[in-house]
Simulated scan of single mutants.
Amino acid sequence: GHVVLQTTGYLRTLNWYLEHLGLIVSDFLYYEGRRERGPVMSFVRCDRGRTPTDHHTLALTLGPSDRYVHSAYEVTDLDALAAGGEHLLREGYRRSWGIGRHIQGSQIFDYWRDPDGFLVEHFTDGDLFDSTLEPGWAPMTASGLAQWGPPATKDFLGIAPGRASLAELRSIVTALRSDDNEFDLDRLRGLLKVASS
């Protein structure tokens, strides 16, 4: 269905995908109170003209390191999503967040971590748009990630104690010491506000 990537060069990366692959933006997210600084996340879809296509095939987000965040796999319906979750539980996976419905894209989602910590999403019932839809703009908040469902977990937000959060902390320090990226102290404040919202 889609892949989510984090990058320190968000605008440069977004423009590359738009220019070279002909993708178009469905929605932009910005840090609350910082819209004038521009977006920090975008949901990007294929441009198929008047033929409707998924809300996003790619999601890009600004962060302190260049990394793969997760991939998402579309299933037929809510029954398949729930049955898949039961299977993953028996196989040693643990639920990261879900079941719920996103706001941007409107997908019913269910996030899981495999035994190695890799994040995957199953989703169903997402929005389809043609090329006439203009991009939406919304503040990025943890509570604004879902229409319904449980609150976003610390695991999903990347702030649960553990090796992954320590690695992210090291990435933050490295990014703040560098002037060759878009992740600065103001963007860190915005990101921290998302985690507590």
Rank of each mutant, 00 (worst) to 15 (best):
G1L: 12
S96V: 03
D179L: 08
G33V: 00
R170V: 13
Q6V: 10
P151F: 01
T174K: 12
S26N: 11
R95N: 04
D125M: 05
L5K: 10
T174M: 07
Y10W: 11
N181C: 11
N181M: 06
P64C: 08
R35Y: 10
R187V: 05
P64L: 01
L11T: 14
F183G: 05
H70L: 03
T53Q: 06
T61Y: 08
A195N: 13
G105M: 00
M140D: 09
Y31I: 05
L192E: 08
R67E: 09
G38K: 06
A175T: 05
S171W: 01
S65M: 09
H20K: 11
L89C: 13
L128E: 02
G33Y: 07
T8P: 09
G49M: 02
L188F: 09
R170L: 12
G22S: 07
K193W: 13
G92L: 05
H55R: 02
T13C: 10
D179R: 14
E121Y: 01
L88K: 04
L145I: 07
M41F: 12
F129W: 09
S178E: 11
S26F: 00
L157V: 00
L62T: 01
D110H: 07
D180A: 15
Y30V: 05
P135R: 06
A82E: 15
R48N: 01
A175W: 05
S178C: 11
